[in-house]
């Protein structure tokens, strides 16, 4: 990358000292250079990001690794209480992941198989529709993003999400650094000091690792999963007919959660 964040902020700060706007800072850096350096990376130019999870290549141990990588990347605290749980990436058994699909003769093997769940980054997201402050919004690349610093904590998005993908900070997430019993559950919290901090009273969720995509890196879970089992998680651009996700969706039978609701989830499972 031509400019890293620190350099950008330095120049932007200096520019504003002289009464120049942020755009001027970019002009100083050489016109068009920032945009050009961003577009050069394949992961910053997507139009509809999607994820395919190959359940044949997944097992509980691998899912746990993905979850750990995600939660370390985004400083997701373990609050030791399911009612307050903050979940970006989590395991849920088949029965509860696909409640309408269940029948009484299904074998225990299928019934208790865990699926790896996260925000579906729906093409038609009800959460964004209901947000009264646009704190949750859809990016041009399809990612349903969350501005934890604008959110007023009304939790309308949590009522609107049919997938239970949103979590609320019922208390201060940083109390895991103060309360003795929570300290043990969260060694080294916050694990990633680069990631924006948040306060109590805001909603958060999976963002498909926008901060990593901006650097040209795959989402943390995908990176970890593919290190262990190549092709366990495939991330790509649905708008690009040549992309791997498009090929996989064309060739393989996949399922989505609650497609009948019309939110168009972009998380697919090969089963």
């Amino acid at each position: 990358m031509g400019v890293n964040r620190r350099e950008f902020l330095k120049i932007a700060g200096a520019a504003s000292l002289f009464g120049l706007g942020g755009k001027t800072a970019i002009e100083i850096l050489a016109p068009g250079k920032v945009e050009a350096s961003m577009e050069a990376l394949p992961l910053t130019g997507g139009e509809r990001w999607a994820m395919v999870v190959d359940m044949h290549k997944m097992d509980d141990a691998l899912m746990d690794k993905c979850i750990e990588a995600c939660h370390r990347e985004h400083n997701v605290p373990d609050l030791g209480n399911p009612k307050e749980e903050v979940k970006w990436l989590w395991k849920e058994d088949y029965h509860h992941s696909f409640p309408g699909q269940h029948h009484q003769y299904i074998g225990d093997h299928f019934k208790h198989t865990n699926f790896l769940l996260m925000c579906n980054h729906c093409t038609n997201p009800p959460c964004c529709r209901v947000c009264p402050t646009q704190a949750t919004f859809q990016r041009k690349d399809g990612i349903v993003m969350m501005d934890m610093h604008r959110c007023i904590g009304c939790r309308f998005c949590m009522a609107a999400c049919p997938f239970g993908a949103r979590s609320f900070n019922w208390g201060d997430p940083y109390r895991v650094t103060r309360v003795e019993e929570l300290k043990k559950l969260n060694p080294g919290f916050p694990t990633n000091r680069e990631y924006p901090t948040r306060s109590k009273g805001v909603v958060e969720k999976c963002t498909f690792c926008t901060e990593r995509l901006a650097k040209g890196l795959l989402p943390a879970c995908v990176e970890v999963a593919n290190k262990v089992e190549e092709g366990a998680m495939i991330f790509g651009d649905l708008a690009d007919p040549e992309s791997e996700v498009r090929q996989v969706l064309k060739e393989t039978y996949t399922i989505r959660r609650k497609p009948e609701l019309g939110t168009e989830p972009n998380l697919f499972f090969i089963v």
Partner: peptide
Amino acid sequence: VDLGNPVRIMNV
């Protein structure tokens, strides 16, 4: 009283 972040209410 239901808002998680009442100080930001003007965001609406």
